[in-house]
Structure formats: structure tokens, C-alpha cells
């Protein structure tokens, strides 16, 4: 074929490879720019946070800018408490929903449930915050007592926010189980629930865990809705009950940013909080990605 086309064919080939090259370069520049942006942000944050980064900052007990005390240990613990609690609720509701959608749900029911869940993703966080402020907080205050603004309110709002992600990714993981495995289990006389328990869940385990971890990273970085419902005591503490109020890393930055003096230790400490939050979320995301990869190889 190539011989028959002769020189003309070669020329066309050359032009085409030139175009290929050009497109390749354009795509590469796109990819490079996103890497550069990430790198710039990390570098800028580290530079601004540097003067504040020491053990007194990470392990210090009190955050009280008025007294020049910038310890974030209690805030970190509060953040983990709020984030992990919310994710436990999400997992308790989300994973059974995913199993139901993937295995037990009739098609026409699924056509109603699935879009409603995906609609949840589109709710802006500030709207969820308003919902929390006007509905969840009075509900908690009237039925459980306390201030209303509480860790529990934060859990509920964050659970609503992260549910659709956990459900979609977990369902995908369950659907990725090869049909032959399922058929083999059923052929051996296993019931549908036994198949789910012994075959589907063990196979999709890593995918489900990854979805939970990704959601955890997301809720830890969430700011607006959490700040509106979590109560924010003036000096952060470790909440002792789920009706206690708390102050998390993101809400501290949001509340303090409006009046911080630039530059000051307070200012550098706020960047320090940002950096700590970034590393926590990055660590969670990397773990999740690693687990997905290992799951695929296995």
C-alpha cells in the first residue's frame, strides 16, 4: 500500500505527524499549567506559613489570637471528630443504598432513586448551611437540648453533602464485579444476600473504602455549611459530647480572616492551618488512590 501511494502518501504522513505533534504540545502545556498552579499554591502557602510552623503551633493547646496563643491541637482533633463522625453516618446510609441500587433494586425504582441522589451533588453548600441553620439546629435544640449548633448538626449536614459521592463510587465498585463470579455463586446455591456478602462485598471492598476516604477528604475541607452550624466557641476546645459545639480548621480560617493583621503571627498561623488541612486531605486522598490501584492489580 505504502509503495503504491509513493511520495504523495509520505507527504501527507509528514503533515499529519506535524499536526499530531502540535496537538501533543498543546495538551502537554495544559497538563503542565495545572501542575504549575498546584506547585505555586503549595509553595506560596508554605512560604507564608513558615514563620508559624513549630511544635507549639501543632501541639499547642489554645487558639486565642487576642492573647497571641496559636495552638491548633484541639482544633485538629475537633476537625477529625467532626469529619470521621459525619463519614460514619454517610457509610451507614450510603453503602447499603449502593448495595440496594446495584443488586436488589428494580430498574424503574432505580430510575427514580439514582437521579434524586445525583441531584444532591448540585446543592450549593451555602444552601445546605441555610437548611442547617433554619431546620436542623432548631430541631436539635427542641428535641435534644443544648445550643442547637453542635457537632451533631455538622455531622448531619456533612453526611447529606457526602452521601451522593459514596453511593455513586460504591455502586460502581459493586457493578465492576465480573458477572461470572456472581453467576458461579448463585449456581452453587447461594442466596442473593449470601452472594452479596461472600462475593460482591469482598471483591468491591477496596473501591468502597476508597469512596469513603475520598468523601472524608471532602468533608474535612468543607467550610461554609460547617461554619454556619457548628457553633464556633471563641476559644476552640475538644467537644465532649455530640451536642457540644466545636471549632474546625476551616471555620477558624473563615472567622479570623476578616480582621487578621497582615503580616503578623496570627496571619502566618492561619496559613499554617491551611497547610495542615492541605496535608491531612492530601494524605487521605493519596491513601484512597493507592487503595484503588492495589484493588485493580489484585
Amino acid at each position: 500500500m505504502v509503495n503504491l501511494e509513493g511520495k504523495g502518501g509520505m507527504k501527507r504522513e509528514g503533515q499529519r505527524s506535524l499536526l499530531e505533534k502540535a496537538i501533543e504540545i498543546i495538551l502537554f502545556v495544559g497538563a503542565l499549567s495545572s501542575i504549575i498552579i498546584v506547585f505555586l499554591i503549595i509553595a506560596y502557602m508554605s512560604l507564608e506559613a513558615y514563620p508559624a510552623l513549630n511544635l507549639d503551633f501543632l501541639l499547642g493547646w489554645f487558639w486565642d489570637p487576642k492573647k497571641e496563643m496559636f495552638g491548633i491541637f484541639q482544633i485538629i482533633v475537633s476537625t477529625l471528630y467532626v469529619g470521621v463522625g459525619a463519614i460514619l453516618i454517610t457509610t451507614a446510609i450510603g453503602v447499603p443504598t449502593a448495595i440496594f441500587l446495584a443488586e436488589f433494586c428494580p430498574r424503574n425504582v432505580r430510575n427514580v432513586i439514582k437521579p434524586s441522589i445525583e441531584l444532591l451533588v448540585g446543592i450549593p453548600t451555602i444552601v445546605l448551611g441555610f437548611f442547617g441553620l433554619m431546620v436542623v439546629i432548631p430541631f436539635i435544640r427542641d428535641n435534644f437540648g443544648g445550643w442547637g449548633t453542635s457537632v451533631l448538626a455538622g455531622w448531619m449536614i456533612l453526611a447529606i453533602m457526602s452521601l451522593p459521592h459514596v453511593i455513586s463510587i460504591s455502586e460502581d465498585a459493586l457493578r465492576a464485579v465480573p458477572n461470572s463470579y456472581k453467576e458461579a455463586a448463585l449456581a452453587l446455591g447461594a442466596t442473593r444476600w449470601q452472594t452479596v456478602k461472600k462475593v460482591l462485598l469482598p471483591y468491591a471492598k477496596t473501591g468502597i473504602l476508597a469512596s469513603v476516604l475520598l468523601a472524608l477528604g471532602r468533608v474535612m475541607g468543607e467550610t461554609m455549611a460547617v461554619t454556619m452550624v457548628i457553633g464556633n466557641p471563641r476559644v476552640a476546645w475538644i467537644p465532649t459530647s455530640i451536642l457540644d459545639r466545636a471549632k474546625v480548621l476551616t471555620s477558624t480560617i473563615l472567622l479570623d480572616w476578616s480582621y487578621v493583621e497582615i503580616p503578623s503571627m496570627h496571619y502566618h498561623s492561619l496559613f499554617g492551618i491551611g497547610l495542615v488541612l492541605f496535608f491531612i486531605v492530601a494524605l487521605i486522598d493519596v491513601t484512597a488512590t493507592y487503595m484503588v490501584k492495589r484493588g485493580v492489580i489484585k
Binding site: 489570637p65 449548633t149 464556633n232 466557641p233 471563641r234 476546645w237 472567622l255 479570623d256 476578616s258 480582621y259
Partner: peptide, 26 residues
């Protein structure tokens, strides 16, 4: 929040001997 002028005025007239409790919500 600590930058508030209303807070400053409140503290000047009312909180002469002590600080606002850390448990207060901001």
C-alpha cells in the same frame, strides 16, 4: 469576632476586670 468594633465597645464598658468566656459562640 475579635476585630469587631462593637465587641471593643462592649469590652470597654462591661468587661473591665475579665475576659469574655472562651465558651461564647462567635
Amino acid at each position: 469576632e475579635a476585630g469587631s468594633g462593637t465587641l471593643e465597645c462592649f469590652e470597654k464598658f462591661f468587661m473591665k476586670h475579665s475576659d469574655i468566656t472562651g465558651a461564647a459562640s462567635e
